[in-house]
Design a binder for these strands. Sequence first.
DNA 1: GACAAGTTTCCTGTTT
DNA 2: CAAACAGGAAACTTGT
Length: 364
Amino acid sequence: MAGSCEISNIFSNYISAMYQPEEAQPPMELLAHLGKEDNLALPAETTAEKPAWFGELPYFWSKAQVLEWISYHVEKNKYDASAINFSCCNMDGYTLCHCTQEQLRLIFGPLGDELYTRLHEIVSVSDELTWIIDLLEKEDMSSQEIFQDSELGNSCTKESLEEMKSTNPFYQADFSYVSGALSPGSSDISVSGTGMSHSPNSQDSGGSDIDPDPTEVKLFSSDDGFADYDKEDVKHGKRKRGRPRKFSKENRDCLETKKSKHSPRGTHLWEFIRDILLHPELNEGLMKWEDRREGVFKFLRSEAVAQLWGQKKKNSSMTYEKLSRAMRYYYKREILERVDGRRLVYKFGKNSSGWKEEEVLNRK
DNA sequence: GACAAGTTTCCTGTTT
DNA sequence: CAAACAGGAAACTTGT
């Protein structure tokens, strides 16, 4: 997995590149819409000098940003910092996000609860970004328990926490090492893998036609109960046209964990595609630029991309065929342009944005 | 509840 | 022949 700084760049890049056209939402607003001015927004006069952690999601904070964030809350709460074991604060945002409330309480005492709450308020705005976070999570899933992540070089190790358990007066409860404490609803997809994790193969040999990759597609495939609802009906003849209902609202609510009431706008297919292309380090050979300047790109593993899109939309029956129909609708709106004679190749049109190198760089 | 936007699903036919 | 492309038609989801 990439270092956290790198990911942090990816992330800010992602945020800034995202949903720019109509919404024109700068990152600041993205976070500020939390509305609670005391948890994020700073006093008006300080906003010219934003703290390092502001404007980025905690998951991607560096150690320095984490420290700054902690200091901010220590100060804000007039908390007696002498009670804090700062040797345990040497963690990056990734680690911080994985701390349970108990762990934070263990490290920070009563302030831990406050930190936990604040942290997750910030994190909860990241719903629209969770597909990337999910990918990162899954990439990491196999590799370690986060507190042992030598790459991150955290001094807040499992051992040190264990040790604190016995010595720290704040310690009250058991904790597990990985809590998956990201934004609520971020992982209700319950995937066991995207098929993207560490597949050094990703036959970039120019063809998607080898796409199928059955093992991989199987990984995507659904346990979520929506998947095959229609196949039977199709076989047996009549089936309503168009998208069938999945479940009644009640049933769906039972199956899904809580999700923010209105899923954020900006989850458009072309943006999803663009963002995959903008983060080759994350897309692991799903797609590639054919002509970066011109915005020409190609699906390398079309079915895998479709599955990923399906995951994002919680629709496990997504296929490239359906995805491509949606892509074709973009021709009329000039979000995409046709590329004749080339299979699986598309081109961004004049009504798309955020993919050009200048645009991406300018927002860094 | 109506409406619009953006898909999603299905289908038939064509091209590669 | 299979896979991809094209587009019409209709249904669905979500936000306003």
